[in-house]
Simulated assay, not measured.
Amino acid sequence: MSRFSLQGRTALVTGGARGCGLAFARGLAEAGADIAIFDVISPEEGFYEIEKDLGVRAVYYKVDVSSEESLRNGFSQFQKDFENALDICVPCAGINRHIPFLDFTYKDHGDLLSINVLGLYFTAQLAAKQMISNGTKHGSIVLVASMASHIAVRSQLCSAYCGSKGAVRSMCPAIAKELAEYVSLEDHTNLQEANPFKGIRVNSISPGYVRTEMTASFPHLLEGWKSEAMNGRIAEPEDIMGACVFLASDASAYMTGQDVIVDGGVTRW
């Protein structure tokens, strides 16, 4: 179980003020990591309970990932506050638009892509540069894609969202390959005494229907979503948490360029 521990590591989660992002931050903190979150909104009370409950550091930065200036300034302040430490990055910030394909506008699409694709891509890039500069030995970037990148969502009009998350899932193995040169195997005779892996791994998570503030804006769809899942329910953010901790930790040390679907079986029937 020690392979799941994140003691002594630092994690950055974008979109961490609420929903899945907050659950990811909480899960990483429960495993022992210090936490920083970037978001444009103030965190829910649950974020401020992390330090009190778990004894790790938890810091919020108001950052708009769709703005290059805001994102770079956020990283600059984060580096100062955490003394350049960064082991885990989870770019989770994202938006959706329930708009028919024939009605989508350039502005609608641009707003969505600026957060879901560009914001995520450059968050991962800045994180990787910091990890490389620091010689991070346990670097893990966990991109947040979606079940919507695998299927045509039956009950929702979200073609642009599907495309944006498809971009995330497609870029994951490509980024992983480019960062693979920073991953190496050390020679240890006793693997119980030292973790043999170091470097930067890149994987993605594809959540299914999750009960968050974003999905709450579609109350008329909730019952239909339940019927699409094999287990007949919508996920809570905590149901996705474990996959993130797994991918961030040494328990997944041989995984890179992969996508983990956590969707209650929606994409499998």
Rank of each mutant, 00 (worst) to 15 (best):
K129V: 00
S133V: 01
Q125G: 00
R97L: 14
I99R: 09
I115C: 03
A93K: 00
K137I: 04
I141V: 13
V117E: 13
S133R: 13
L102F: 09
H150F: 14
M131E: 05
Q125V: 11
C92Y: 00
L118A: 11
S114I: 09
G139K: 08
A93G: 01
S133A: 15
V142F: 11
Y121C: 06
I95F: 00
Q130F: 00
D108V: 07
G119H: 05
I99H: 03
A148E: 11
H109A: 15
S114C: 11
K137G: 13
D108T: 07
L120Q: 11
K137R: 13
L126R: 04
A148S: 15
I115T: 13
G135K: 09
L143P: 04
T105Y: 07
L143K: 02
F122D: 03
S149N: 13
G135V: 06
G94S: 08
L126Y: 12
D108N: 15
Y106T: 14
V142L: 14
P100Y: 00
I141L: 13
L112F: 05
G110M: 04
S114M: 14
Y106H: 10
A127G: 02
F122Q: 12
N134Y: 00
C92L: 01
G110C: 05
S114N: 14
S140K: 07
S146A: 15
G119R: 07
